[in-house]
Write a protein that binds this DNA or RNA. Structure first.
Lengths: 252, 252
DNA sequence: AAGTGGTCTAGACCACATT
DNA sequence: ATGTGGTCTAGACCACTTG
């Protein structure tokens, strides 16, 4: 058709050096991620159509499409044929699908309810400093709660948040769905997470809170949640009872 | 350009009913999966170029491309720019990346070595019947082994295989990398797997084999491996020590 | 009927690897 | 120099949703 003269249109990067070739759709994708991170496109909102975005940015619709497809594959966008493209929300469905891997042995995954034990502010301990990239003088907000399914305690959870990011969260009530709160009130979108699992033995205190015998084995899940720009925003240490439930991991 | 008249070329499915629309690339993908399952394209082999495949099947190169891209995303194919498209192999790199989630706390994942404890044939127990879709009269081959890292026992593993599929495997030596053997000798490709994790307490026997104290907590990993056509082909029950290692799970 | 995303095609050109 | 996959474009048409 015609020559490509638009490689420079977006990012006037030096294309003469062969190192670091960045395809157009990747640059477009970066633009979109920025808009998501900046809240220009808020959770649940609808994006302009592919054609509009293509015209605005000055690339073909196919290039916009590739960028949007990748973001949808990363669960940051939701595409619905005939309706449009929307910013993904941290609703219960998504959390259950993407972040909550504990499933009853017989039955399907459900969203547990929570009982908050404590909310406190303290200096970050060694583990929190390392995980959240904090110094020994940084404060964290610690939320401790028990999560139950059908009235039976299942998880003892300790959530650690950098006070710098989430200051004030300790004042209000703690909703069951924290990620949705991070997004709505602090503009922080949890994009993905990494979990480290170990088998441990419950201490007397922990066992009491979960109403089981001390010495009961439990699954310790150490989760680090990352925001859209890859920064660590939450550490969550969970002790899970796995008598009647298991952690489901799909290897694809 | 010109009208589409090729929707019927591959699969003369009834396109008049609006239900069950199957895009062309999905049909092409199904053809390719069949060739992989039938061993027409063997592990490590190179595929014909996109253009050749497109001409052979009678679709555009873009349609072939979309099918190949999806298979590459599922780790069944490997695409290398400038070289070609190849059938994925179960080499150590892939297994470490896709199937071996146990990582030393400080350090990077490595491939453990194995010491075989026993190889036996027996009637499938209840768990094996359920997992592998067998009847109570079906035989399984059971391989029991200890896997160690730097000489320290890490995993006690029990592999259960349907004798119908893997008859004769009990005769030969048991290689460290079983999936590669399944592919080479039995034409069975493990495409993906599903793991159920629980925290348990080791029995005296198990603890002795792992050279730890009885009562030590361990991570029980119950893996079901599925072949290309989705059939269960291997059950693997692992008891993992998580004192100095953890199970890494990426939530994306 | 109009608008959206989804599919399919055709062709040009780019980046990469090998010969 | 050649061949491969990777990118980008342009346009047509299909499937789905909503007015």
């Amino acid at each position: 058709m015609h020559k490509r003269e638009n490689a420079e249109r977006i990012e006037p990067a030096d294309r003469s050096e062969p190192l670091g070739f960045r395809p157009l759709y990747a640059q477009v994708k970066a633009i979109f991620i920025r808009r998501l991170a900046d809240g220009v496109w808020a959770p649940g909102a609808g994006l302009p159509s592919e054609g509009q975005l293509a015209a605005e940015i000055g690339v073909s619709q196919g290039t916009v499409r590739k960028a949007l497809d990748e973001l949808a594959a990363e669960n940051l966008l939701v595409r619905r044929q005939g309706r449009g493209t929307f910013v993904a929300e941290h609703d219960e469905r998504r959390i259950l699908f993407q972040f909550f891997k504990l499933v009853p042995d017989d039955g399907v995954a459900r969203f547990p309810d929570s009982t908050v034990l404590s909310v406190a502010i303290a200096l970050a301990d060694a583990g929190e400093q390392q995980a959240l990239d904090l110094s020994s003088r940084d404060d964290v907000i610690r939320i401790r709660r028990v999560r139950a399914l059908d009235g039976a305690p299942l998880v003892l959870e300790t959530v650690s948040l950098p006070r710098r990011l989430f200051g004030g969260i300790e004042a209000g009530p703690v909703p069951n769905n924290l990620y949705s709160l991070y997004a709505a009130r602090y503009g922080v979108t949890v994009a993905n997470a990494r979990e480290k699992l170990k088998a441990i033995t419950l201490s007397a205190d922990e066992a009491a809170l979960l109403t089981v015998a001390p010495g009961t084995p439990a699954l310790q899940v150490d989760r680090l949640a990352l925001s859209l720009d890859g920064a660590p925003v939450e550490r969550r240490l969970s002790l899970c009872l796995t008598e009647g439930a298991h952690y489901l991991s799909d290897l694809r």
